[in-house]
Each structure stands twice: as C-alpha cells, then as structure tokens.
Simulated assay, not measured.
Amino acid sequence: MYNEIDGDFDDMAISTFKVGLPVEHDLRKSLTGKPITSVVQLIDRIDKYKRVEEDQQQGKGKAKIGGYDVKRVLVDQGNAVEIMYPDLYKGLNLKPKDLTAYDSPLVSFKGKTVVPRGQIRLPIQTVSEVVEMNFIVVDAYSPYTAIMAKPQLHALGAISSTLHQKVKYPSESQVEKVVRSQSMARQCMVAAISHRLEAESSASAEKSL
C-alpha cells in the first residue's frame, strides 16, 4: 500500500501543480504539450520558465543578432527583406569588407529610393531558436536598428500580432513568445517624429535662403 502511494506521488504532485495554474498560463501549456514524469523534472521546468520570464522582463529574451543583444528592432511582416540600419552596423563593428554585393535598390517608408551598401548573413536568436538571415545594410536614418521581415517569420513559423504586441512561434512541443517593449516603441515613435520635424524645418530654412 505504501509503495503504491509512493509510486503515484510524482504524478499526483505534477497534476495538482498543473491544475492550480490558469488554463492560459504558458507554464501549464508547456506541461500539457510536453509532459514530465517526476517532481525533479517539474522543478527543472519551473526554473527554465522563470529564467525565460526574467530574461523577457529585462529585455534579454527578445532578440540577439550576431550574438549581441539588440534593442529597437521592428517586426514588419509586410517587409520582404531583413534590414540593418547604421546604428546596428556600427554597433557590431562591421566593415565594408564584411559585406557582399546587393545591387537592387529599395524603397523606404517615405517612398524614396535607397541604394544598399551591401548585405551580410548573421544569426538571429529569439528566446530559444536561432536562424541565419541575410540583412540588407542601408545608410539611411531610422529610429530602429533593424527590421525583421517575412523571411525570418517564415523560418520560425511565427505569427506576429500588432494588436497584442507579440510574436509567437512553435518550439519543440510548446509555443514561445517575444513581447514588444511598449516604452521602447514610444521612444522610437518620438525619435521618428522629432527627426521628421527637424528635416522639415531644415528644408524650409533652405528654401527661404
């Protein structure tokens, strides 16, 4: 009798813990999608969940490009190619010799034609997945450091929601998510507006001369 109780203890503890979590809780979904068989595995899964959650809260679980944590990344599922702007190009200490030729001109958000400096292939890490992507390097202003586009989203099998400010994608038997920073988004918006106003002011001043 005691042996039977001892043998069922792990299953009982895991089941009780899982039932105590909200239905939509990510940890409960993880335990359901990828079942465990012992309390030791349960503790390991909880620890992993906490680390990922802490990383996301600290901004470390969002995106790494070329092995470095990168902020101000725009996810644009309507864009056909990944874009790298000057801030990231300089931050990664890249040189012209690191780039390969890319001759096709691009059209900016303002409708202007932009001639790329070249392209480079770099690994992108989002939480637990790593994929290599070609970045088109452009010498143009942007409040963002890079744009993640269709190729990366398709490689991850990801779905981007502008309403919920999240990107979700399957990883093993669970769903990972990347959460957008609202404060960073506001900073980028303010920077973009300030840059436009400065450009318009400079253009007006030149016309008056």
Rank of each mutant, 00 (worst) to 15 (best):
E198M: 07
S142N: 04
K71E: 14
V190D: 10
L21P: 01
A191H: 01
V138H: 03
P35Q: 03
I124C: 10
S161Q: 08
E200H: 03
A101E: 11
P116C: 02
S161P: 07
P35C: 07
E132F: 14
S15C: 04
N93K: 02
G59E: 04
L88G: 01
E24L: 09
K71H: 12
G33M: 07
L153V: 06
M148F: 14
Q77G: 12
S128D: 09
L122H: 13
H25N: 00
A63V: 15
K64M: 11
A140K: 14
D11R: 13
Q58F: 01
N134S: 08
D69G: 13
D10H: 13
K50S: 07
V52C: 03
G67H: 13
E54R: 04
D69A: 13
A185M: 02
E82W: 08
K64Q: 14
T145Q: 13
K64N: 12
I124D: 04
D6T: 08
A192D: 08
E132R: 07
S38E: 07
A205W: 04
G157K: 09
V178A: 12
R196P: 13
K95Q: 08
R45M: 09
R51D: 11
E129H: 08
Q77V: 09
V39Y: 01
Q41W: 03
P96A: 01
Y2D: 14
K150F: 15
I120A: 04
R180H: 07
Y2F: 08
L122M: 10
Y49D: 05
Q58H: 01
L92Y: 04
D6W: 11
A13D: 05
E176D: 15
A199H: 12
Y85W: 05
A149M: 00
L21G: 03
S201E: 11
P105Y: 04
D26E: 03
I159Y: 15
P170E: 09
D76H: 00
M148Y: 12
R186Y: 07
Q125R: 08
S30E: 14
I14V: 06
D69Q: 14
V23I: 09
I36S: 03
T32H: 00
L74H: 01
K60D: 07
E4H: 11
S202N: 13
K166E: 07
N3K: 14
V167E: 00
I193F: 03
D8R: 06
K168I: 13
M189F: 08
T32W: 01
G66M: 09
T145I: 04
Y102F: 02
M12Y: 06
L94P: 00
F9Q: 02
M12C: 05
A199E: 13
P170G: 15
G61F: 06
T37Q: 05
H164E: 10
S171C: 11
S181W: 00
L197W: 02
V75W: 09
K150R: 15
Q77T: 11
K150I: 15
E54I: 01
F135K: 04
N134T: 09
N134Q: 08
